[in-house]
Write a protein that binds this DNA or RNA. Sequence first.
DNA 1: AAACAAAGTTAGCCACAGCTAAGATTGTTG
DNA 2: CAACAATCTTAGCTGTGGCTAACTTTGTTT
Lengths: 143, 143
Amino acid sequence: MPAQPKAKAAPRSSAAVEDYLERILELINTKGYARVVDIAQSLKISQASVTNMVQRMDGDGLLKYERYRGMVLTASGEALAKSITRRHRILTDFLRLFGLDEELIFHDVEGMEHHVSPPTLKAIEALTAQLRRQPALVARVRL
Amino acid sequence: MPAQPKAKAAPRSSAAVEDYLERILELINTKGYARVVDIAQSLKISQASVTNMVQRMDGDGLLKYERYRGMVLTASGEALAKSITRRHRILTDFLRLFGLDEELIFHDVEGMEHHVSPPTLKAIEALTAQLRRQPALVARVRL
DNA sequence: AAACAAAGTTAGCCACAGCTAAGATTGTTG
DNA sequence: CAACAATCTTAGCTGTGGCTAACTTTGTTT
Ligand SMILES: [Mn+2]
Ligand SMILES: [Mn+2]
Ligand SMILES: [Mn+2]
Ligand SMILES: [Mn+2]
């Protein structure tokens, strides 16, 4: 018997895997399916790299993949993708308060999102809500 | 003649290189010198990895390194190290507003800092200054 | 059905950034 | 000064996540 009951296989995913999951979920939500060619274009990487990563993610149980046919997120893959999407949205909402360039926001969020812990995210979310009731204060930051 | 006057060789450094620079500067400031063994302990990586990276950074002109003897930051390495240290400090000051665990703050900042652009950093810095005059608002976030 | 184009896959490559094990250098100590 | 411990370096390895070139599969067009 293991020392720990089952450990839940801690879904320790890298920044790259998180970006793939985020795009795959978005493609499924908007087009109904996620194709290799679309993932590649969206992430600006080669189709070959996508095929390779998708095979790894299949092995890791994040999605089910059939050669030449397509892929679907597993339950755990989808749960992870949704939480990643939420993080991305919360950080974007926060940075939008300050009148920064939209492309810059996207770039910064795309990098930062992989390093923000749940408590920090919660604080930023609450702060954003508060700042929305204080436009005068926010205006002083936007200067 | 080149199209651009000189381009300044854009010091495009990775997250790992930035972490090394930050620690090396800190060690120099507190002990007067940065030794391989101390960098290794501080970053929790092996001495061999440090030697390897330090050699690459020498090749990239970020520091001058002499085998078995030691290293000094170049002008550009020191400038970069200082700006990295500043980013780290500004982000830490921001997150400290919310009563988060100090270890958690360090972990998050250590990851996020490499992805925050100058305009975003400036906004966060200004926001922190404003929030310091609004303890009541901050208290609502800390709940 | 043959031909073609688009999409997908494989093979082989690379840089980055870590590791261990083994050996070299340096400075201190008996 | 010899021996020793600490420090540093080298050699060789690994996983991640990219790439290009060449090939295969699929679906559409004629
Ligand atoms: Mn991202
Ligand atoms: Mn994202
Ligand atoms: Mn860092
Ligand atoms: Mn730092």
